[in-house]
Design a binder for these strands. Sequence first.
DNA 1: AAGTAAGTAAGTAGAACCCCCTATAAAACC
DNA 2: GGTTTTATAGGGGGTTCTACTTACTTACTT
Lengths: 218, 218
Amino acid sequence: MIKIAIAEDHEIFANLMAESLEEEPQFQVKINAQNGQDLLNQLENQDIDVIILDLDMPILDGRDALSIIRKKYVDTIKIIILSMHYEELYIRKYLKSGANAYLGKGCHYETLVECIEEVHSSGIFFHDKVSPKLIEELLNDESTIFRVLKGEPLSKAEIQVLKLLCRGHSSTKIAELLGRSSRTIDNHRYRMMKKLGIHNSMELMEYAIVHKYHEPSL
Amino acid sequence: MIKIAIAEDHEIFANLMAESLEEEPQFQVKINAQNGQDLLNQLENQDIDVIILDLDMPILDGRDALSIIRKKYVDTIKIIILSMHYEELYIRKYLKSGANAYLGKGCHYETLVECIEEVHSSGIFFHDKVSPKLIEELLNDESTIFRVLKGEPLSKAEIQVLKLLCRGHSSTKIAELLGRSSRTIDNHRYRMMKKLGIHNSMELMEYAIVHKYHEPSL
DNA sequence: AAGTAAGTAAGTAGAACCCCCTATAAAACC
DNA sequence: GGTTTTATAGGGGGTTCTACTTACTTACTT
């Protein structure tokens, strides 16, 4: 039995989806939330397998909900983004941000069912329309869903360096502190960024904050 | 009437201080908290002028409490740090972090009284033992207490640039977005760092977070 | 009318970062 | 035991940041 949460502000659509999914013997819709905040509250008391998440909602939208959920539940809950905008740019963005699948609202009901099952069992689902190029890119991108699926991607040394970087230290300073070559520190940073798919220290700091490696100074 | 809050985990000391201060006609001790969390909770329901803050406390120490209070109440509440460690290094650090005064626990009672009055009226107090050099340095340092006293030190353009920097954009990218020269953006960033007394983008991001200019992406 | 602050932009230069590659030894995993 | 990952560190090169300066314009203030 796959336990499902729906977060969708268009009630008619949400209810229709809930009713249809309830009829499937393998599904059980346990949450039907109208916004992200509502979803987060209900998640506290429910054991959910898959979330069907609308991006555009009032109060707390799917974008924010996604990052909060990924921060809190890491990889235990699968998330399917259900959006009006079905464009490669968005698909890439949200799959890189921790979603397990991305569907356009124009997709067929059968696709949704298949998607829920796939996402629940294997952790990832690509719609037929997603180009092989993008699939290839995402599968080989250490920063995407596989990061979530594989858990913590950073090594101990990398985390140590990350924390020091967050305190505003330069490579050479960190090298001194740790008794290493500055090239080693450079290398650690480079590999972290490579893994995480980011390209500058600001985004690295952002990652550190989300993943609680950032220890506020003072 | 100056309304005072005391945050100090050594109860005997806290109570002694509270009783003595209460005897002064111009003071009223409204909060006597044992830790930072306790202090923050009580601050919600009280109108306080001056906080006497111990650095070493359980649950939530003075270091963290200081930054939280500065974030929340900005410059309406004056903060006196009361610490066991009376060293220039610490004095510099905490005064730069938003405290209005720094006293060692070895100071005389009269000094405390004078300090509370000074801090309440003028916003800053230096103990006799603080070296003129340090006073000079702090008074001329745009990153210290005067930042708090003067309110927001960043201009609109600077804040706009700061927000974009936090999203991980480079100077050239921001220049494109805003229709400015990249040298202008460089200059804004440089002047922000100069004002705030910081030296790299990580610390800039930290400032942005504390001052709520950082808008978490996605 | 003079003074002050903000916004714009450019010059110069060294430090630090970012990118990618190679390579070796140890540790961890299967 | 063999494979993969991690930690280490160096080469080379382009880009960006950091630091400090000067300078002109606009706008608000006294």
